[in-house]
Write a protein that binds this DNA or RNA. Structure first.
Length: 744
DNA sequence: TCTCTCACTTC
DNA sequence: TGAAGTGAGAG
């Protein structure tokens, strides 16, 4: 069935289209096709000819259609839209008088994130979805108080590797599995004014992580394969689908737009917080992370050794009682125990622990008695780094008249780092870290297609950009002049009150364009459930949509070689500060690169060097192993969608690595010398180990000293412990524990 | 490795 | 009071 905008109601759906499409002729036709059901999510599709085909399963069609008109020009938060969102003709959006902004983003709970990162990052993913902990919270500043902003978050693959936890540390275990469909999560309060955003901490704690590919909490928007900006599928939902044992990097986006419909035409400022990088797991691998979360997550209080949590205490007491029983048995029978390594570990633990400490979970055993390879503490100390505040890394990418926002020193300018030559067309966001210290620098990625009409966006190349200029001037007369085709990283801009830190590597365009080229959107539950955001967005993007069957079509043949190589050229943080124009072009060309959220189709992501959290990631990983350059020769050839020329060849991996790493170190040195010194200092190691123990033992009644492995062999302590345990056992015998773990 | 259930928590 | 969020542990 097909109907025009003048007759917006779709039979059986009570749907009305949102006619506001900033760069479209008002009389474009939109058609709706019901009955087609994509594999996982309903899809909004649009043929390349500009007509929109809307495809939704029947069950979802109505609630979504009911709200296709929503918060768009009203500015009402999507989460506040009810199922009966107001449907009415929408007037043409009047361009607002804009005040230039300079958004800065500060990561909240940074100390916790730092600990999280030091100890080896792990985030549990479950079938039903698990929240992130630490929660992703940011504080924004520098926004135009009056302007409306949409805040988004997504999670992208950090590299192209699969990991395993071996010998108390994360190691590369091969090539990454095909990526899950990607989504982006729009903060439920979006859109809101800058004043509103700045008045509070923006939290994304409701975003959930899942490994359930059949997750229904989302849907997909499909875009025409020949579209210059939007290709592939964009998923929206409350949960992001991740692969277990893979590394990911959350990203935060600020979009100056007063409705979702403007997203495709708006500037994306993307902020990376390297310390928020994590490895998705279905079960915790690293005890340190487990303990960190237990100690800090209120919901895990039950597992703490203080408070009302009893499970661990019971478990430990039961274990100890069993051990004591064994000891007694040995004494009585004069036989030696079949001491397994596990038992030995326990003995060590028991000997060094007071009764109070006995409540410590078994997770501490490794710390106390490292018996396999290098201890976690050692791993931590090796990757220790300074405690200085870390803010987002900022990368700006624009395909239109994006103003050159980095007014700071050259040091804060673009650090276009190595993009993995095998970059995935669908995903510009494969990340890697350029320098351990660079992660203390903010990085922002601003990607803009603002001012690009649908037709113009289909015309790749600079002509398109030029056209977009005029287009934007027309659409957004209030806008300041933009410098087209620029890629910049403004480390300082995103850093609250802190100077920029070089050594920060990015492939701004890669990440910046990712959203447009295949990165899906996540909507808050309210948005999805009520359909407000999605509907509005879907309607707005209608003209941009193309029919896509299944995961994605028409995106093959599009590739990111140019971007990847371009980013690779900028691997060195310092040298990348001045990004060659042709590289910028490459990055911009990425706007024309099709990307699919389905990794199986596009298993070769763009990779750009971001702040090198990984380099110092504790048990998390070895940055060397996952360094994209080491995988260069495994990269497949890529095709370019954009007609842009590729002035520079893909650099040799070895040379890239050789040149990039020293420069990273050099770049990090001057600005982060203190941190580097701390990281390298044995003293810092000792301090950290102690602090870590202290922090972990904050809930322990005993001091960290008693937890020290050094005390393991001390016979006196052992004797004391044994006596204590015996006393405890006596108590247990008097009052049997009902713990499950205590039952045979 | 993953899934499920459990006891415990917060809100 | 109950829904929802926790890690542990069994399978």
């Amino acid at each position: 069935m097909s109907l025009s905008m003048r007759d917006p109601v779709i039979p059986g759906t009570s749907m009305a289209y949102h006619p506001f499409l900033p760069h479209r002729a008002p009389d474009f036709a939109m058609s709706a096709v019901l009955g087609h059901q994509p594999p996982f999510f309903p899809a909004l599709t649009l043929p390349p000819n500009g007509a929109a085909a809307l495809s939704l399963p029947g069950a979802l069609a109505k609630p979504i259609m009911d709200q296709l008109v929503g918060a768009a020009e009203t500015g009402i938060p999507f989460s506040s839209l009810g199922p009966q969102a107001h449907l009415r003709p929408l007037k043409t959006m009047e361009p607002e008088e804009e005040v230039e902004d300079d958004p800065k983003v500060h990561l909240e709970a940074k100390e916790l994130w730092d600990q999280f990162h030091k100890r080896g990052t792990e985030m549990v993913i479950t079938k039903s979805g698990r929240r992130m902990f630490p929660p992703f919270k940011v504080r924004c500043s520098g926004l135009d108080k009056k302007a409306k902003y949409i805040l988004l978050m997504d999670i992208i693959a950090a590299d192209d590797c699969r990991y395993k936890f071996h010998n108390s540390r994360w190691m590369v275990a091969g090539k990454a599995d095909p990526e899950m469909p990607k989504r982006m999560y729009i903060h439920p309060d979006s859109p809101a004014t800058g004043e509103q955003w700045m008045s509070k901490v923006v939290t994304f704690h409701k975003l959930k992580l899942t490994n359930n590919i059949s997750d229904k909490h989302g849907f997909t928007l499909a875009f025409p394969s020949d579209h210059a900006t939007w290709q592939g599928n964009y998923s929206f939902g409350t949960q992001t689908i991740l692969n277990s044992m893979h590394k990911y990097q959350p990203r935060f986006h600020i979009v100056r737009a007063n409705d979702i419909l403007k997203l495709p035409y708006s500037t994306f400022r993307t902020y990376l917080f390297p310390e928020t990088e994590f490895i998705a797991v279905t079960a915790y691998q690293n005890d340190k992370i487990t303990q960190l979360k237990i100690d800090n997550n209120p919901f895990a209080k039950g597992f703490r050794d203080t408070g009302n949590g009893r499970r661990e205490k019971r478990k430990q007491l039961t274990l100890q009682s069993m051990r004591v029983f064994d000891d007694r048995h040995k004494k009585e029978n004069g036989t030696s125990d079949e001491s397994s390594s596990e038992q030995a570990a326990f003995n060590c633990f028991a000997q060094s622990s007071s009764p109070a400490v006995s409540t410590v979970g078994t997770s501490n055993l490794k710390d106390l008695c490292p018996s396999e390879g290098e201890s976690d503490a050692e791993a931590d100390s090796k990757e220790e780094h300074g405690p200085e505040a870390c803010d987002a890394a900022k990368i700006s990418t624009t395909t239109s008249e994006e103003p050159c926002r980095d007014k700071g020193s050259p040091a804060v300018k673009a650090h276009l780092f190595a993009a993995e030559p095998g970059g995935r067309p669908r995903d510009a966001g494969r990340l890697d870290k350029a320098s351990p210290d660079s992660r203390h620098s903010p990085a922002t990625i601003s990607s803009s297609t603002r001012g690009l009409g649908a037709e113009e966006r289909r015309s790749p190349g600079r002509e398109g950009a030029a056209t977009s200029k005029a287009e934007e001037a027309r659409a957004l007369p209030g806008k300041e002049a933009f410098a087209p085709l620029t890629v910049q990283t403004d480390a300082a801009a995103a850093h609250l009150g802190q100077g920029p830190l070089p050594g920060l590597g990015f492939a701004p365009g890669l990440a910046g364009q990712q959203f447009f080229n295949g990165h899906p959107l996540f909507l808050h539950p309210g948005q999805f459930a009520m359909g407000g955001a999605f509907s509005s967005m879907a309607a707005g993007m209608g003209p941009l949509l193309a029919t896509v069957s299944g995961a994605s079509t028409g995106v093959s043949g599009l590739d990111s070689t140019a971007m990847a190589s371009a980013a690779a050229q900028g691997l060195s943080g310092a040298s990348a500060a001045t990004l060659p124009f042709h590289l910028q072009q490459h990055v911009l060309a990425s706007q024309g690169l099709a990307m699919s959220p389905f990794g199986s189709l596009f298993p070769y992501p763009y990779t750009y060097m971001a702040a090198a959290a990984a380099a110092s990631s504790a048990a998390a990983s070895s940055s060397v192993h996952r360094h994209p350059f080491l995988n260069l020769n495994t990269m497949r050839p890529r095709l370019r969608y954009s007609p842009y020329s590729i002035p520079m060849p893909v650099p040799d991996s070895s040379s890239l690595l050789a040149t990039a790493l020293p420069s990273m170190a050099a770049a990090a040195g001057p600005l982060d010398g203190k941190a580097a010194a701390l990281a390298a200092s044995p003293a810092s190691v000792a301090v950290d180990s102690g602090s870590e123990l202290n922090s972990r033992s904050s809930t322990l009644s005993s001091s960290s000293v008693s937890l020290s492995p050094k005390l393991c062999p001390e016979k006196e302590a052992a004797t004391s412990e044994l006596q204590n345990i015996q006393r405890l056992v006596s108590g247990l015998e008097a009052k049997p524990d009902r713990s499950r773990s205590g039952s045979p």
